[in-house]
C-alpha cells in the first residue's frame, strides 16, 4: 500500500486481496465504453450523472470491485469528478473497494434473521472457511479466506424476513439455512470452483 498524499488518493487506495486471481484486472476497452454509453442513454438528456450507479454495478459485476483506475474511468463516462465517484462508492454498503473471493457470501444478521440464528451462522461460516471474524468490523466489513476462494460479509436485512436465516452467495439467495444446509452449500460451491 502506498502512502497517500492527498484526499483523493487516500480515498482511492488499492487494497490487497487474495481474491484478485479470480477476477480479471480492470482494463478500459471500447466494449466497456459502449456499454456505459447505453446506461447513460437510459436517462434524460444531460443527466449523465444518473448513470453512475448502473455503471458502478457493471464494473463491480465484471471485475469484482471498484479499483482506483476504474473510478477515474467512471468519472469520465459520467462527466463528473473522480472524487464524486469516490463519494458514491464510499457511501453505499453494496459497493466494494476491496476484491471479494470468488464466492462472496452475504449473511443477514438483522433482527428477524437474528431471531432464527443468523448471527451464529456468521461465526460458524468464518470458522469453517478459516476467516478471522475480527475482519468483519469497521467500515468495510468483509473477511476473505487465505486462498481467495471465499469471502463473507455480514449485511443488514435481505428482505426475506419470514424465512430466515437468509444468506446470499454471489447473486443467489438461500433461505431457512442451518448449519447442515450451510455445510452442504459450501461443499456444492467448492466443487464448482
Amino acid at each position: 500500500m502506498t502512502e497517500s498524499t492527498d484526499a483523493i488518493s487516500a480515498l482511492t487506495v488499492e487494497h490487497p486481496s487474495p481474491g484478485k486471481k479470480y477476477y480479471p484486472p480492470f482494463q478500459p476497452t471500447a466494449a466497456l465504453e459502449k456499454e456505459a454509453k447505453e446506461y447513460v442513454s437510459m436517462y434524460p438528456e444531460g443527466k449523465e450523472l444518473s448513470a453512475v450507479l448502473p455503471i458502478i454495478h457493471m464494473i463491480q459485476g465484471k471485475f469484482g470491485y471498484i479499483c482506483p483506475e476504474s473510478m477515474s474511468w467512471i468519472a469520465q463516462q459520467c462527466k463528473c469528478t473522480e472524487i464524486h465517484v469516490a463519494g458514491i462508492v464510499s457511501f453505499y454498503p453494496g459497493i466494494r473497494t476491496r476484491c471479494p473471493g470468488k464466492w462472496h457470501i452475504r449473511v443477514c444478521h438483522t433482527i428477524a434473521c437474528a431471531l432464527s440464528g443468523g448471527e451464529e451462522l456468521i461465526g460458524y461460516i468464518c470458522e469453517k472457511l478459516g476467516i478471522d471474524p475480527k475482519e468483519l468490523s469497521g467500515d468495510e466489513p468483509m473477511g476473505i479466506s487465505p486462498d481467495g476462494l471465499w469471502s463473507i460479509e455480514p449485511v443488514e436485512c435481505l428482505a426475506n424476513c419470514g424465512f430466515g436465516p437468509n444468506l446470499m452467495v454471489n447473486d443467489t439467495l438461500y433461505s431457512q439455512m442451518d448449519k447442515e444446509k450451510v455445510d452442504k452449500l459450501l461443499a456444492e460451491y467448492a466443487e464448482k470452483a
Binding site: 437510459m42 444518473s50 450507479l53 448502473p54 454495478h57 453505499y92 454498503p93 453494496g94 459497493i95 443488514e156
Partner: peptide, 10 residues
C-alpha cells in the same frame, strides 16, 4: 419505464 438498481442503503 426503466429499472434503476440501488446499492444496499436503507
Amino acid at each position: 419505464i426503466i429499472l434503476h438498481r440501488g446499492a444496499g442503503a436503507y
